[in-house]
Computed example of a mutant assay.
Amino acid sequence: MKNINEKIQHILNLYVEDIQFELKERWNSWEKDLNTPEIYEVVGGILARQITITEHLLSCSSLWNGHMAPMVLRSLADNYINLAWILEDPLERSRKFIFFGLGQEKLQIAHQKKELKSSGNLEENKVYIEAMENWINSQRYVFLTEVNLSKWSEISVRKMAEEAGCIDFYNYVYQPFSVNAHNMWNHIAKYNLIESSNPLHKNFRRPGKFSTDADFHYVDLACKYVNKMFSLYDLKIGFSSNRLYPYKKLHNAINKLSKEFSNDEEE
């Protein structure tokens, strides 16, 4: 039998092609009003972001473990909650999303100018700084762009999830994976400390790292969150198709491969 890992990667490659196709289909079928481009750019960008993150996770099996995958999955969860909240009031919240991002870019430029000036390198980096400012100007004049040091939505992620009707997703996905992303004790103690086997050490823990094999469960979760994003878009925008969702096709292919592998082992 062909190497099982090669077969799994082939299935994942087909899945990636599927989600790219589904994104293109949704984008091309969406009737757009160019008087309010913010809605389409923000929603389209968030969808593309979900797919991009997932593609990179799927292409690197060394990330399919409890050390790295939760950080990626937390980002996917955050991205989903953003879209869910934005779609409750698309125009106003898309603009809020954009303006906050532009403000953060303006703040970054200010910090870089200060650092470059103090190091005497401002002049030689002038073209780079101007390019960053022109990027902002192409959307909103720099001098009109406000810097907001609060949250882009002006409320907590939990509140966003509540208002968007996805508080369960926040509780069961976003919050648990945040423990990993923020390097909190209840992740570090489990994954980066090893308890001494000597009873005289009183359960003292030493630095270490649990070695973990690649776990396909993390891949399944990432694909599940892409599916969740497509389902949300389809419901809110009104897209429909007779095709199976890529997530369902992926499951069918993995189940078929699993049966083939089991039969080969029995022979």
Rank of each mutant, 00 (worst) to 15 (best):
K2P: 14
I4S: 13
E6K: 12
K7L: 14
K7G: 07
I8Y: 10
H10M: 10
N13R: 12
E25Q: 15
R26A: 11
S29P: 10
S29Q: 14
W30P: 10
E31D: 13
E31V: 14
P37H: 08
E41T: 12
I46E: 04
L63D: 04
A69Q: 02
P70V: 03
L73H: 05
L73D: 04
Y80H: 13
I81V: 13
W85I: 00
I86C: 02
E88W: 01
D89R: 04
D89F: 04
P90V: 05
E92K: 15
E92T: 12
R93G: 00
F97K: 00
L102C: 01
Q104I: 07
K106A: 08
A110I: 11
K114I: 08
E115N: 12
S119A: 08
G120P: 03
E123L: 11
E124K: 14
I129Q: 09
A131R: 12
M132Q: 13
E133H: 07
N137M: 06
Q139Y: 13
Y141V: 09
T145F: 08
V147K: 11
N148Y: 09
S150Q: 09
K151H: 10
K151C: 04
K151D: 14
V157P: 01
K159I: 08
M160A: 05
E162F: 00
A164L: 05
C166P: 01
D168N: 05
Y172M: 06
V173I: 15
P176N: 06
V179N: 07
H182Y: 02
N183Q: 11
M184P: 00
H187V: 06
K190C: 05
Y191S: 11
E195V: 10
S197H: 12
F204I: 10
K209V: 05
T212P: 01
D213E: 15
C223L: 07
Y225M: 14
K236C: 02
F239A: 03
F239V: 05
N242F: 06
K249I: 08
K249T: 12
L250E: 03
I254P: 00
K259L: 14
F261G: 01
S262I: 12
